[in-house]
Design a protein around this nucleic acid. Sequence first.
DNA 1: TTGAAAGCGCTAACAA
DNA 2: TTGTTAGCGCTTTCAA
Lengths: 340, 340
Amino acid sequence: MKNVTIKDVAKAAGVSYSTVSRALTGSPEISEETRSRILQLSKDMNYTANTVARAMVMKTTKLLGLILTSVNNPFMSELAYHIDRQARARGYNIILCNSSRDSEQERELFELMMGRQVDGILLLPSGIESYNKLHPYLSRIPTVFIGENLREVPESYVSVDNYRGAQIGVEYLYKLGHRDILYFGRRRGSTTHQLRAEGYAAACEHFGLTPRYCNNTFSFSSVKYGYQLAKQLFSRERHFSAIFAATDTNALGIMQAAEEIGLRIPQDLSLLGFDNIRDSSLPRIELTTIEQPMKMLASVAVDTLLDKIQNDQAGYSHRILSPALIERSSCAPYTPAAKK
Amino acid sequence: MKNVTIKDVAKAAGVSYSTVSRALTGSPEISEETRSRILQLSKDMNYTANTVARAMVMKTTKLLGLILTSVNNPFMSELAYHIDRQARARGYNIILCNSSRDSEQERELFELMMGRQVDGILLLPSGIESYNKLHPYLSRIPTVFIGENLREVPESYVSVDNYRGAQIGVEYLYKLGHRDILYFGRRRGSTTHQLRAEGYAAACEHFGLTPRYCNNTFSFSSVKYGYQLAKQLFSRERHFSAIFAATDTNALGIMQAAEEIGLRIPQDLSLLGFDNIRDSSLPRIELTTIEQPMKMLASVAVDTLLDKIQNDQAGYSHRILSPALIERSSCAPYTPAAKK
DNA sequence: TTGAAAGCGCTAACAA
DNA sequence: TTGTTAGCGCTTTCAA
């Protein structure tokens, strides 16, 4: 079943098809009378402009590529939601792809997106190596990185202040009286995580505490891995009264492991997360955490990208947003009596 | 910065541009030698095929529209993830849009998607009224509804067997000894919910139980609304030993309300959900529930849509998938001693 | 104010 | 096997 085109409308209206185009695009060089007549007619005929054809001549698709490791992740799905809203408000639509945390897939998706002539790309990189692999493309298509700090790199990104967030967390626990705070889930391959660990270390030093780590040997964070790590951790003797988890998903895993051995949170152990994913506010979870302001991240990311598109890639910008402490029920003041 | 086109490659190779096209599309009417020469050259020149131009002549964009009420919802984001994977495996990409549960927005998005020449649309309808509003478009673009059963309607959909799922749930609670089972969250405006309620009623009758309802007066399910409803419910005298919640999100709200008044789950009250969203498997939540097989829903939906696209909308199909009980820790055998 | 015509990058039918 | 050409649906000069 053929779609009705500009030509069909032109024929029906008895004008040339360029006149119809003018009516549709809101061009000023057309009489008000013909315009309204054509508009009415195209409505009657169920005409819908072919965006693809328009894109060919306009050289802009009003399409943004969104590449994330997985929408099936509370942090990213929330981000994706806000990105869609913000983009749509500005006349753009989103092509969504999951990279499954694979930088080679990211590369392929870049090619795919460029082939589809997206006006720009929003990327939640799978890790630090993303940048190198993607580098050849970055000069050819406006791109904004989200979440990952690429400090030394001359590319635009939007991120929360991970270093500062970690400091806030330690300070909070310190004020609750904790002096032995374990940093849980430190891992390599992500600047984000490196910065969080550094912020933690700096704050420890500031307060005269000894930094202690439980390293994440897996390549990424998940509830499952957090659980496995925590199991091991709890099987050894404990020297800490609070855990600062590198991510909320890690914290969720810790909760599960703690539950299993009858370790009560927050009575026996205070637990602090990072990210404020949706799950953390659930009943019985009620995780105290450092928030990444996702709605803000999303809208700043979209705005940054659109700026870049309009100004034809003039320079780059680093936008660092402030994290905030979200106080719920997983942290309690230090008590020496806490079961060990 | 201009993209390199097929013409640039042709000029560099000293052939006509249709020859380049033939090399690129894998046409057989070209010598092996020229093909490999051109392929190599286009790689060297960083040539990427312009999918938009190709779409114009091929009359297919290999793009699918995905409209859901909100990716920021664990059920839908999981679905979206699997839909992307399945679609990509079959050579398609996804344009994602959130309707924010507004049928007028759904309508606008349909127009937008059609303008973008998507090959088909996957829709998680916001409610029963979606069908009426969208009806005029359904003959113009291949569409598959997901999740919502549109029983009497001659349109394709994929859904879980909600009626059967509710029966399974009641049977499970019955076998645990429960005789007073409250159905929580019944609401209008959604066949899905109607079917669940009907399945519940049928099973009650089968076992000789009296069906009891706590109606959801809100227009949709969320943790917050579940919580508010449960608060009211618990403020009155209770005559039930188990609650069958219409959705997992409702169940999560119930948990929160129960927690607040010191009602223990499952010791004092058994709680059964429906959907098996990701949150339900979290530590401390461990909600026993009826699963919607999302990965399967996603792949059946994509396959159904692609079939429809290829066979030019020949007929429609209703695919009903089987739900399954996921046993966790929120249900316990009935004990008369349970605190009331 | 309107129409004619070129051209966006590509595929495919037709010629050579 | 290769080149020439038309045309996909649209916007936009340029002429009238």
